[in-house]
Design a protein around this nucleic acid. Sequence first.
DNA 1: CGACGGGACGC
DNA 2: CGACGGGACGC
Length: 492
Amino acid sequence: MSTTTTAGMEESGAGARPLANLDHPPNSRLFLVISKSTPEEVIRDKFSYYGEVQDIWVVRDKQTKDHKGIAYVKFAKSSQACKAMEEMHGKALTEDTKPIKVFIAQSRGSGSHRDVEDEELTRIFVMIPKSYSEDDLRENFKEFGDIEYCSVIKNKTTGESKGFGYVRFLKPSQAAQAIENCERTFKAILAEPRNKQNIFSENEYMNAPRQDATVYGTGYEPSRVQNTSPFGEFGSFGMSEVRGGENISTCLSVTTRGVLTHEQVYSIFDLIPGLECCEIQRDPYMGYSKGYALIRYNNVASAVYAREKLNGFEYPPGNRLGVSYVEDESGDRRSNPVGMMALQLVAAQMMSMVCGGPTGQQMMPPPVSTELQAYGGSTSTTQISRLQVDFSVPPCQQFAPVESAVRERLFVVFNPAVLPLDILEDLFCRYGNLIDVYLVPGRNIGYVKFAERANAAEAMEALHGKVVNGVKLKVMLADPPREESHKRQRTH
DNA sequence: CGACGGGACGC
DNA sequence: CGACGGGACGC
């Protein structure tokens, strides 16, 4: 007995299930072909460099105990296993032994002994906003490694994005790192190889010998050109002008492509104190613009704040508001140089607040962009401070691990419209141990999963009845999920 | 009142 | 060629 207990090394072992761990996370275990003379310790020496080695198993004949020249190395992460594979494959472990082979091991239940090819380990599948171009994808994922190509899947006839895409990396370790470390809203997973159907090997006994067809031209050209986003430039707004000589005013015009009701516009702009007037204008001559509104505050600071915070804001989601200053009909302060200087001064002070001074909590929380980056990574386009509340909220907290058990679920009703997912995650994560926010498509409702009941209770207590980004929330305990019954009519 | 999940590529 | 062990939740 070797008694070196490879699996016993992890401290404070929650005993856990030994077998299940071997396939979690996926592709974190290596299959080695080595010399029959190589002992476990040599493997450990060489491979622990690449990360947390959780288990090493040198395969021996059941009866004779002969070393069969095969070993398995389990890492904590797929990226560690992939890196080790990339660097150790073809290397000799000691001077007197042959070069070894290193592959990602087939998952334990698969029964297949076919080598896992790099082809299957380098392409990831991601969910993305409809507005994303290939370039946006590349921008978001280039930090994880060398990208061979990006593709965004679009409706062939309309050209509209379907909301997902593919990123092919050069190396498996790069794809693995992208999956492990990209923003969770991407829901990145390894892509299924093109030629195969979605086949889950959940204890399926397949009689027909399927040809595993290892030979396939990729037949997929990285179309690197094309694709100028038809949605126009994003990210041109933000903390811009002010000093750039915009005509600051207490009056704002609001343009929107979609129709907004007076109540909707009012509820948004009334989040900022000092709203004096909110008029919806309907202008049949406005062409594409379905409407616009005029806003007036009783002070210039509020107007500046509103302009900075709400210009470019999506409300409802997908509908970007345009907010700009318009002539203050009553005000002639601008004609007066002193009055103008006063305005600029106030504006500058407002801007410094907006841009992250320690103030401003009672009106709205400071911009959350820095916190977003804390759990996000590259926030690609635009993103002004998106979360807007008129009550105080705790700072952002780490999400609970995706695989956490769901200890409580909240049911949320939005009025008059749902909020974007990133805002909701930004909001609910602040109460701790958030697992996931799910919005029911086409409805103004959603569910929020927590890994701890106390956090859910806190969120519910703090947020029920509140207005967030102009949207009123009802936050309640969710009823238990509907049973997924056996009915499976109507697949598509 | 307001109740339940999300994913696949034209060679 | 080169593919699957050992150990065992505990107040």
